[in-house]
Structure formats: C-alpha cells, structure tokens
C-alpha cells in the first residue's frame, strides 16, 4: 500500500505534526462532517486520524484563560464544569446533530469544516475565541474571526493542526446564551442562529457580546447592537433592524431565502436578549 491509501493514527501531537510536515493529508477527527460529505464508501487520499491524541482531549485552565483541546467532543463539553459564560456554547453543543453525533464530533472539527451554519462559531465569537495552530515550524495564535475566511475556507496551512481553542480570561465573565432557528426542532442545520454573552451589573448591561451565524459567508459579531446595549438597563427593545444593517449578507439557499433570514435575524437577537431580561426579573 502506497501513501495513496495511507492511514496514520498518531498518539501524540509531535507525531501528528511530523506526518503533516511530510505529507498532504486529510485530517480526521470525529468524521461527522467528513463522511457525510464524502459521498463514497471511503475517504479519498491519505488520512491523519487525530482521535487517538488523548493529550488534546479536554480543558486546560490557567491565568490566561481556558483552552479546549482539539479532540474534545461536544459531549465532553456538555459534561464539563465551565463558567456560565460558556452557557451559549453548551446550548449549541446540545443542538449539534444528536447525542450519537455529539459523542464523536469535535468543536475543532466544527471550526475547521468552516460551514457558515456551524453552530459552534457564534458562541465562540462571543467568547473572543482564539485558535492555536501548530506545525513543525511552531505555533501561531489568531482570533477565530480571522481564522474563518469564508464558506469552507480557513487560514489553516496544510501542514498545520488546529491544536486547541483558547478563551481569554477577559471573556470568561457574564452569562452565555444560544438560540437556533431551524425548519424543525431536531437534527437540523440552522437557518440562522445567534449567541450572546452579557455582563449585567445592577440591572445595567456592563459588557455585551453578540454574534450571528448563517446570515453571511461567515458568522459575525454585531458591534452596533452591542454598543446599543452597553450602559443601558437590559431591554430587548433597544435593538432594531438598523443595528444589524451592514453585518448581514445572507444568501438564498434550500433552507431559507435572504429576505427571510434578514427578517428573522433581528427577531432572534431580540428573543435571545429576552432570555436575559427574564432571568433578571425571575
């Protein structure tokens, strides 16, 4: 068997980086995006299966923040004790496929697959997430917003492994929420989804992070809406369509048309903010 059919399953990062430096490889983690996209019985070309790198599974916490390793699954994330700023990411985790998908699929795979409808992205944007890219040449860290270039396009070089996702300590404050709109309740790809992380002190919004997905080539933060909230008592009515203008570039596709997405975007932002208003008065 030549490299054509090569399959590597390293148990350490160093070993994985050696393989990536030497060959052009398809990285496989949970394979829950790879296989359905393959449309064949097997993956084409040589494969680097990273699911055996146990050192990359789980969460590392230090004074700079929390790092989520590349082989951490959605189920791992749901089960992990994490600050309530991660509330949105945990809700998103429960919406990725179903339990059997969450048991295999990874957060890192969700990012590298770079679907505009990837549910992990908006909550991670509200957490100011950075990705750590490792290669034989060294490591580089970049904001998730720069890593995601377009549909199915990332800034990852072919010899790089996304080693982990880092949430800086400054973004660990407040509470996170996530809200997804699909054509039905279960097992569905998002028409649009929003995430929010708010720090509310004495009823007043001290910090706001909002992000929207599936309404443009990549998910995006909503700085104008964020600015409209900060310093005000929590009220979903503070946001209207004008705050989203310029940040949405939806397309027509099989799930919804652009006009519908534009309409629901504002509605979703208001609804997610409503959850914070409710929890405050409760």
């Amino acid at each position: 068997m030549g490299l054509q059919n090569g399959y590597f399953r390293p148990t350490s990062v160093d070993e994985a980086l050696d393989h990536l430096a030497a060959n052009d490889l398809t990285i496989a983690a949970g394979c829950t995006d790879l296989f359905p996209a393959t449309e064949q019985k097997t993956l084409g070309g040589p494969v680097l299966d990273i699911s055996g790198i146990t050192a990359l599974r789980g969460f590392r916490k230090n004074e700079t923040g929390i790092t989520i390793g590349a082989t951490t699954t959605w189920s791992d994330l749901i089960a992990a004790p994490l600050p309530s700023a991660f509330g949105g990411l945990k809700l998103a985790a429960r919406e990725v496929g179903a339990r059997q998908i969450q048991n295999r699929g990874t957060l890192a795979g969700n990012l590298c697959n770079a679907s505009p409808a990837a549910d992990g992205v908006p909550p991670l944007l509200t957490l100011d997430a950075q990705v750590v890219l490792a290669s034989k040449a060294g490591r580089r860290v970049m904001p998730l917003a720069d890593f995601l270039i377009g549909p199915r396009q990332t800034a990852r070089r072919a010899d790089e492994l996304l080693e982990g996702v880092h949430i800086p300590a400054s973004a660990l404050m407040g509470d996170g929420q996530f809200l997804k709109l699909g054509a039905r309740k279960y097992l569905v790809i998002s028409i649009a989804m929003v995430a929010a992380r708010l720090v509310i002190a004495d009823g007043v919004v001290a910090e706001a992070a909002l992000a929207i997905g599936a309404c443009g080539p990549v998910a995006a933060r909503l700085p104008k809406a964020e600015a409209a909230l900060v310093g005000q008592p929590m009220d979903p009515g503070l946001i209207n369509a004008s705050h989203l203008q310029g940040y949405l570039a939806p397309i027509d596709d099989m799930r919804a048309d652009a006009a519908y997405r534009t309409t629901v975007a504002t509605e979703l932002v208001q609804r997610i903010l409503g959850r914070f208003a409710e929890s405050r008065s409760a």
Binding site: Y7, A28, C31, T32, P36, D49, S51, I101, R104
Partner: peptide, 9 residues
C-alpha cells in the same frame, strides 16, 4: 453511529 467511524479508530 458506526457509519461515521473508522474501524481503525
């Protein structure tokens, strides 16, 4: 789902 997993994995 055993259809989304390699035997080797």
């Amino acid at each position: 789902k055993s259809c989304t997993m390699l035997a080797a994995a």
